Simulated assay, not measured.
Amino acid sequence: MIDLLTLETSHHYGSALAEQYRFRYRHFILRERWDVPNYNGMEYDQFDTPAAAYLVWRDTDGAVRGMVRLLPTTRPYMTESLWPELLPDAGAPRSPSIWENTRFGVDRDLPPTVRQRVTAELILASMEFALNRGVQSFLLISPRAILARTLPRAGLFPAVQKNTTLPSGHVVSSAYVHVTAEALEAVRNKIGVSYAVLRHHGSERLRAA
């Protein structure tokens, strides 16, 4: 199951909010060698604001082992501010129906079958979140491999917008993923999960179509 964290609700989840910063430090800085702000073993940036929502998967010890960060495009967001070369030709979206989806990561030390399950649940949880918030599309900034392989394996086919090559040689792309009830059902059928996976405070499960 995936927990939905915000600044307003994080106190209901113990140390989960801090744990997602620690996970990001381990995953993006230590493993991926990103040059991003960090403090005391935690990775963060200027977009970790009260507007941010975090979808996290935790192990039995409460450590975050997979996550994604969601940002409304009605507030400052990463693509617009830091990656203008990756903005779609139509320009920077600014709409309550379009959210940015970034910081997608799953711990590579998990067993392969568990990694696959966490990846699938994070994809489903993102779609459930969108349908419950009236979000019609996600703008992703992601390694090209995730857009070319991971999402299609789950039944999603992102519309790639722009590409850039990092100093490390990795290709990063922007892409739109459109969310509908039909798309959610197709992904559930593709990966074999028929139930809602996203939980939030005040509800055992956040229900989606």
Results as ranks from 00 to 15, higher is better:
Pro88Ile: 09
Arg149Thr: 14
Gln136Ser: 04
Leu110Ala: 04
Leu151Phe: 04
Trp99Ile: 03
Ala52Gly: 06
Arg144Val: 14
Arg115Ala: 07
Ser203Asp: 11
Gly66Phe: 07
Val118Arg: 05
Pro158Phe: 02
Glu85Cys: 15
Tyr176Gly: 00
Thr60Pro: 08
Ala63Arg: 15
Arg144His: 12
Ser15Glu: 13
Glu128Gln: 06
Ala159Ser: 15
Gly202Glu: 01
Leu131Gln: 01
Ala52Pro: 12
Ser194Tyr: 07
Gln161Phe: 13
Arg117Cys: 14
Arg133Leu: 07
Pro158Val: 04
His201Trp: 13
Phe47Pro: 03
Val56Ile: 11
Arg188Asn: 00
Glu43Val: 07
Leu55Ser: 01
Arg94His: 15
Tyr39Cys: 14
Ile2Ala: 09
Asp109Trp: 11
Ser142Arg: 10
Leu82Pro: 06
Asp45Ile: 15
Ser137Gly: 05
Leu156Arg: 11
Ser10Val: 04
Arg31Tyr: 14
Ser174Lys: 12
Tyr39Asp: 07
Arg117Ala: 12
Gln161His: 05
Ile123Leu: 10
Leu147Ile: 07
Leu71Gln: 10
His11Thr: 15
His12Ala: 08
Glu80Val: 12
Pro158Ser: 06
Arg153Ala: 11
Arg75Cys: 01
Ser81Leu: 12
Leu87Asn: 00
Ser97His: 00
Ser97Trp: 00
Thr74Trp: 00
Ala120Tyr: 08
Arg75Glu: 06
Pro112Asp: 08
Ser173Phe: 06
Gly202Ala: 05
Leu206Cys: 01
Thr49Arg: 02
Pro88Tyr: 10
Val172Ala: 11
Gly14Trp: 13
Ala175Met: 08
Glu19Val: 08
Leu86Asn: 04
Gly62Glu: 09
Met78Asn: 04
Asp61Gly: 09
Val177His: 01
Asn189Ala: 15
Val106Met: 08
Ser95Asp: 01
Leu151Met: 08
Ser15Lys: 12
Ala125Val: 08
Leu87Cys: 05
Ser15Gln: 15
Arg75Ala: 02
Val106Trp: 02
Val64Gln: 07
Asn132Pro: 00
Ala186Pro: 03
Gly155Gln: 10
Arg31Asn: 06
Arg22Gln: 14
Gly62Phe: 05
Thr119Asn: 14
His178Phe: 10
Asn40Tyr: 15
Thr60Phe: 15
Arg199Lys: 13
Glu204Cys: 09
Ser126Tyr: 07
